[in-house]
Amino acid sequence: MPSLNLDPAGLPILAGLWHLDGATARHDAVAWGYAKGATQRGVELHQLTEVTGVDIEAGRVTGVQTNRGKVSCGCVVQAVSGLSAEVSRMAGFQLPIVAYPLQAMVTQPVKPFLDPHVSSSALHCYVHQTSRGEIVIGGGSDPYPLYGTRSTLELKEGLIASAVEMFPFMSEMRLMRQWAGITDMTSDYSPIMGLSPVENYYLDAGWGTWGFKATPICGVTMAEVVASGGKVPDLIAPFSLDRFDAFRQVNEMGATAASH
């Protein structure tokens, strides 16, 4: 690994894990690819349309109120990431989810030097270089819940200190951009998928910091739930909302690995 400090923060690297089939994808390109494919198949996407209420009659959802009018429906799939708990409130039930910001940042672009994505579980920091030459720096969620998406100086200081430990030459670089997103965290770091207390209102929530990677199978499986009128496939049965009532949390090994 060129340029990597083998003794970062006094924690010498004794061994590493090399994920042969690991890869990174341009998330915005993937999202637009899905949007394009869906609209070509007849799906309508309404941007800048905020859900303001959910109409429930006799335990069933009949429509969704928005700032641009009402949409009647046969069923609803709630897949709203960071605002899951707020939207479920409109449908009349709570979710065992807490919202935390997840922050990341990129440097100015430099010539290609780093091909793999490098992650230190000891420093809770990951670094990779994009096809445009920028270096992406990220790590764990914020230390306390917040619905704000403003970047903080505290997290930048901490993350950059770790990134510079890993790649010391980066102390000469300048940050170009920073951002934060809201993640909906469950206590077992696993998603909530399937049925809800409202009969025809289905959930895809609680993906925390790692929903992107599961999006394809998640979409197909939730489509099965809708098409079958609420029959939950075995694949996602362990992720039901009622697992918390039964203390049947998912033992997710990845949850111990801190950063991605």
Binding site: A85, Q94, A99, Y144, D245
Partner: peptide, 21 residues
């Protein structure tokens, strides 16, 4: 009951506004 305890352990308001922590 187990369910009341589970609700206490896992659920919270998580509502936007002033919270007591």
């Amino acid at each position: 009951t187990d369910q009341e305890w589970a609700h206490y352990v896992f659920y919270g308001d998580n509502h936007i506004g002033v919270v007591r922590e």
